[in-house]
Design a protein around this nucleic acid. Structure first.
Length: 550
RNA sequence: GCGCCUGUAGCUCAGUGGAUCAGAGCACUGGUCUUCGGAACCAGGUGUCGGGGGUUCGAAUCCCUCCAGGCGUACCA
């Protein structure tokens, strides 16, 4: 991308200045170009002179001049200026900018794609909510983040696999199974109590009656424990399918739904425990098996196998990550977690190190909690009490597009309030509609232009300020992808989408596209076409629809 | 107690390895339209960047500390 190209030129210019002796031979630090916010400072600015000043024992302005003198005036660069206290400001060339419209059109949907990943195999795991209840609105945040990040990383040259870890094993299962059995029995008029540690939400009753409809009372006729297991499995299957539906309706797709139970079935949990043990990272105390993470700098050890012989969730999760790093051997793994699981991160990293892999191959995105409100009241989010707002409800009320956009529009680090009533009431003012409207408007212009043939349009005519501003904004797109991919911060997309929509609307207001001037019409149709490509791609990465009309 | 995250305009929030960092949207007020979609455009900001210290030529950004909130800190997941 052009920014990196210019950074390279600046670095080379500095080296040339050193070769000539106009700049002392000090180490050239990384040339990071900034994007000035004021147009008069150009498109890119280098602070290299300020950074070198101390070591070079020269005034930053003099360094700036020495470097600027060596900068070649390539096609892309229109103007080079040094500005106090020591900036090198670079303005892109108008003609070159105009020509980029053709470049965008020919790149089409590949515009902005990068090759940061070089084909590296990367797995991103997200949501992975317990299947013992419906997905909550909170899962929507993980879904939007994970899916969008997956899109961005794919566009950045990674070979991405998306995965949902299904916790279909472990101690919560039994409580859920018991609950299903009780509700099933109740649906058939048999008195059974939901255990206190069971799941009290009404959805279990719904599941039970559904099962009665499909299977009748046959489970009451078999041995109790057998019935509990059979009913439980049916119910879990239904819950998983519901989760798949919810996420699909939000535009989230997975390559793999990975079963926790399968780790036990394949004896991978056992094997992983053996490896940890062989490598000297386990200890037996009070009848339990511990992972001695303190030896790896952790503040505490963690139980792998309880004194009753049952492995903990942590044990199977270590096995799961063993599978990720050693069996399937992904180069990189990203786990998207809610803040309520943040404590899991350090011990998981320790476990990966203990297994013999570089823990830096695991990255985590810990997103903060969301607080749901309805009519100013906080809503609890617990599956066990059943007092939840489901993702389904949010999708139905707010719509998938607005929902995704909203979840994405804040950095994962910040908590967010989600007032359902507000989200509904404001839906017409939601930024997502502003962005989609810009896309629909573009589509409309292209429809209006009808059969005007503009493939041969001369983009060199696009020299006015609104046109050039739009082009500049489009050229920021690859930089945006890079930021989102390297920082793992998809929220920047929503801001960019609003920016480019605003710049387009402004251009539209000032520049008549289809007019009597045939040549200008063709050139501007090309610009509009390019804007459509960029806007549509931005929306697609976010998983938001780019409507032709609305 | 300890750990992670957060505190920026009335509200919701951006601000990518300091300088060219005081920003956007919403809300509010006032303008713009004889033609391509007005769900639009243009104009309007006196904010101790939670408080206080520190480093520096320069800090919303880095360090320390205090305050406030969220989440962790289980032989739960």
């Amino acid at each position: 991308m052009i920014r990196d190209e210019i950074a390279r030129l600046v670095r080379e210019a500095a080296r040339r200045a050193q070769a000539k002796g106009t700049l002392p031979p000090v180490a050239i630090t990384e040339v990071a170009l900034e994007r000035p916010q004021k147009p008069e400072y150009g498109d890119y600015a280098s602070t290299l002179p300020l950074k070198l000043a101390r070591a070079a024992r020269m005034s930053p302005m003099a360094i700036g001049k020495a470097i600027a003198d060596e900068l070649p005036l390539v096609d892309a660069i229109g103007k080079i200026e040094t500005a106090p206290p020591g900036f090198i400001n670079i303005t892109l060339n108008e003609k070159w900018l105009a020509e980029q419209v053709d470049a965008i059109i020919s790149a089409e949907q590949d515009f902005g794609n990068l090759d940061l990943g070089r084909g590296e195999r990367l797995q991103i795991e997200f949501v992975s909510a317990n299947p013992t209840g419906p997905l909550t609105a909170a899962s929507g945040r993980g879904g939007a983040l994970g899916d969008t990040l997956g899109n961005v990383l794919s566009a950045s040259g990674y070979k991405v696999e998306r995965e949902y870890y299904v916790n279909d094993a472990g101690s919560r299962m039994e409580a859920f199974y018991q609950t299903v059995y009780a509700r099933y029995a109740q649906a058939l008029g048999v008195a059974e109590e939901v255990p206190p540690e069971g799941y009290h939400g009404t959805y279990v009753s719904d599941l039970a009656s559904e099962t009665v409809q499909e299977h009748g009372d046959k489970f009451l006729k078999m041995p109790r424990q057998q019935a509990i297991d059979a009913l439980g499995k049916i119910a879990i299957e239904k819950m998983i399918q519901a989760a798949q539906r919810d996420l699909a309706d939000m535009g989230v797709r997975y390559d793999c739904w990975f079963s926790e139970q399968s780790l036990y079935d394949a004896s991978l949990v056992k094997k992983t425990l053996e490896i940890l043990s062989e490598r000297g990272f386990t200890d037996e105390r009070e009848g339990a098996v511990w992972f001695t993470s303190t030896s790896l700098g952790e503040d505490k050890d963690n139980v792998l196998v309880r004194s009753n012989g049952v492995p903990t969730y942590f044990a199977s999760d270590v096995a799961y990550h063993y599978d990720k790093f050693f069996v399937r051997a992904f180069d990189r793994v990203i786990d998207v977690l809610g803040a309520d699981h943040q404590g899991h991160v350090p011990r998981m990293k320790a476990a990966i190190a203990a297994l013999g892999a570089d823990p830096n191959r695991l990255q985590t995105i810990v997103h903060q909690m969301i607080t749901l409100r309805r009519c100013r009241l906080d809503l609890r989010m617990s599956k066990r009490t059943g007092d939840i707002v489901s993702l389904r409800e949010v999708l139905d009320e707010v719509g998938a597009d607005a929902c995704r956009f909203f979840f994405l529009s804040r950095s994962a680090d910040s908590q967010m309030d989600f007032d359902l009533e507000l989200a509904k009431r404001q839906s017409n003012e939601n930024p997502v509609y502003y962005v989609q409207y810009a896309h629909a408007r573009i589509a409309s212009i292209l429809r209006y232009a009808g059969d005007v043939e503009f493939a041969q349009g001369n983009v060199d005519l696009l020299r006015t300020e609104p046109e050039q501003t739009l082009i500049r904004k489009m050229l920021q797109f690859p930089e945006l992808i890079e930021t989102a991919a390297t920082q793992l911060e998809p929220h920047h997309l929503t801001y960019y989408a609003q920016d480019i929509a605003a710049v387009f609307h402004s251009f539209y207001k000032q520049c008549r596209v289809v007019s009597d001037d045939v040549e200008l019409t063709r050139a501007r149709l090309k610009l509009v076409q390019a804007a459509k490509i960029v806007l549509a791609k931005t929306l697609r990465l976010m998983g938001v629809a780019a409507p032709e009309q609305m």
